[in-house]
Amino acid sequence: MELAQRGQPIAKPASRPFINNRKVMDALGKAVIYALTTAGAIIFIAPWAWMVSASFQPLGDIFNWPPTWIPEHFTLENYTGFFETAGLGRLFFNSAFLALTITGLQLFFNSLAAYTFAKRRFPGRDIIFIILLSTLMIPGQVTLIPAYLILQHIPLFGGNDIFGQGGHGWLDSYWGLIIPAMSSIYGIFLLRQYMKSIPDELIDAAKIDGASEFRIYAQVIVPLSGPALAAMGIFTFTYVWNDFFWPLITISSPDLRTLPLGLALFVVKNRTVWDLVMAGSVVATLPILIIFLLFQRYFIRGIALTGLKG
């Protein structure tokens, strides 16, 4: 034993190459990590990058084989073409209008409900909240057909009589897209998780000062929930902007189509005008991309919030 211990210091020089070896291994490991990460990123971004590149190429060049990644004959005509053929301006307006309106409404209604569920004490609170949450599991397909029929029979709208008969009601109108989407249980859940961490003392202090419940909500809770509201707002905006299914089944007038719907129908109808389609695709993606790049922090944090506590 003693011998062995005494022997230790002598062995020390031998450990030097070991350290070097490890440094080499570390550097090698790093190189592998960089190589893999970069290769993966290139594969992930390539289809997307190609869309951007193709949107600036004339139709003939898009069909080049091998594909041209850097436009040889740079053109903006695809954009102007899509603008004219598909009524891009109108599509863009519809999408922006709907996304902003629904996001605004949801920010208000969701946060109001979230505050109530997070901080107020009232009979039935927990049971109501659990019932709301448990229905998140129900697939949209189950409520789809009734929702369609309900919208169709809203009285006195879209040519309907007082009994909701005869016309198309809220189908094929902004109403049918906005009203059912005014509040979201998912959004309420996300905000409630965040609001629960706001100290009760702040609310009590406001109460002692005689603030009404609405004032507590508007002047204490909302200002303190900035990051969560930002995350929820961005999610909602993205979701509405990207949504395809609900506009597909409710909207029939070309004037009311959203950008994804207009784009999809354009593709189904004109199978070969890839130049215009690519330009339209870029336009449909751009606003979301800009929002994402600007608010990436909130985006990521919001996702993590739902993911970890879900």
């Binding site: 997307w48 395809f244 994804p260 719907l261 784009l263 999809a264 449909a284 993606t285």
Partner: peptide, 9 residues
């Protein structure tokens, strides 16, 4: 980025 790209696109 692929995840925020509209599914239609």
């Amino acid at each position: 980025i692929p995840n925020i790209t509209p599914l239609v696109v």
